[in-house]
């Protein structure tokens, strides 16, 4: 391929460090496959930098903020540059869990009972009354997360209703809307979905077993802190159910090229949709590269195929 691939990583979101790690791994994998790669960060001179390159293809590996909410992809569209990944509208929808989860639920996918609330609502109606309502409606334990964030930042399990206010405040540190959902206990899996000529392809689910019991930031990005099983240690029919659920979510949210769908499989074998990721982590401890390699495929080659598809889209 003669045109450079611009791996865009870093940015100004809370996940900048993770993004830089993802970007480095993606760039290395593509270079190992013989591609010319330019690594770039988000900065005021980026548009000029892109204009100076010979018909680049952009591979955004930006986590959180403008990297996942569709804003940057709108700019790529304006520039008329091909890019790997979901279009802006799909990113906007998927990045906001408060919006995406009901859409996936309407497609028949199981989702935890939940409520999404901006912090203004608590100010206007009084926190105590709403906290009580949440307790009565959803029961315990609960899981609180920012509506638009990643890497488990601002997430917390709540076993006692008196701890809910602090957990809510913690989630609001990352955004103005928090999602409170009934905590579903079970096997946590991540499913990588990649578009191919034959349609979206789900890789075998990766089971996540954090040593600490919680798949938080430490468990995600400390090598050795979590065990991964690929495929998940689940009966074949449950694995198939996970795959179908992931593909349904990928298609329902109009995701493109590559996504990661996070699920939790309860004791009855029902996979619950937790969230979709339009810019999944690609670090040394991330599940998407692991799933691809565990399936015997080359991570770099899969990315190169996606770059080729992105180029073809613009003719």
């Amino acid at each position: 391929m003669s045109h450079p691939i611009v791996v865009l990583a870093g940015g100004l979101s809370h996940e900048r460090e993770v993004s830089l790690l993802s970007g480095r791994r993606v760039a290395d994998a593509l270079r190992a496959c013989g591609h010319e790669v330019v690594e770039a960060d988000i900065h005021a001179g980026l548009i000029r930098q892109l204009a100076e390159l010979d018909q680049p293809v952009i591979l955004p590996v930006l986590h959180g903020g403008a990297g996942e909410d569709g804003a940057l992809r709108e700019v790529f569209e304006l520039l008329g540059l091909p890019y790997v990944g979901s279009p802006a509208a799909a990113c906007r929808l998927t990045f906001d869990k408060a919006l995406a989860t009901p859409v996936v639920a309407r497609a028949g996918v199981a989702t935890p009972d939940r409520v999404a609330l901006p912090h203004d609502m608590f100010r206007e109606l009084g926190a105590t009354a709403i906290v009580d309502l949440i307790g009565r409606r959803l029961g315990l334990p609960l899981f609180v997360k920012p509506s638009a964030s990643g890497s488990s930042l601002g997430c917390q399990r709540v076993d006692d209703l008196k701890d809910l206010p602090a957990a809510m405040v913690g989630a609001y540190s990352y955004g103005r809307v928090a999602v409170v959902e009934r905590f579903v206990s079970g096997v946590e899996v991540a499913v990588a979905v990649v578009d191919t000529e034959a349609g979206p392809k789900a890789y075998p689910p990766v089971e996540i077993r954090p040593e600490s019991g919680v798949y938080d930031y430490e468990s995600r990005y400390t090598a050795g802190a979590t065990s991964f099983l690929a495929p998940a240690d689940l009966p074949p029919e449950i694995i198939q159910r996970c795959v179908e659920t992931a593909l349904t979510a990928h298609q329902t949210l109009s995701l493109r090229d590559i996504s990661r769908i996070d699920l939790i499989v309860d004791a009855a074998g029902v996979p619950y949709f937790l969230e979709g990721n339009v810019a999944p982590g690609m670090t040394e401890t991330s599940t998407v590269p692991l799933a691809i390699e565990a399936a015997g495929e080359s991570f770099g080659q899969v990315l190169a195929d996606l770059v080729r598809r992105a180029q073809a889209r613009l003719g």
């Binding site: 349609g199 979206p200 392809k201 789900a202 890789y203 075998p204 400390t222 090598a223 050795g224 802190a225 979590t226 065990s227 991964f228 099983l229 690929a230 495929p231 240690d233 074949p236 694995i239 198939q240 795959v243 179908e244 593909l247 349904t248 040394e284 401890t285 692991l290 565990a294 399936a295 015997g296």
Partner: peptide
Amino acid sequence: MGQVSLPEQRHETRLDRYLDLYAQRTKGL
């Protein structure tokens, strides 16, 4: 809906092959 093809062997990893070699004092890192 797509049928997943499963590899014959389950791959289990903690993504750090040196894990058993580290000193106890590195646990906090």
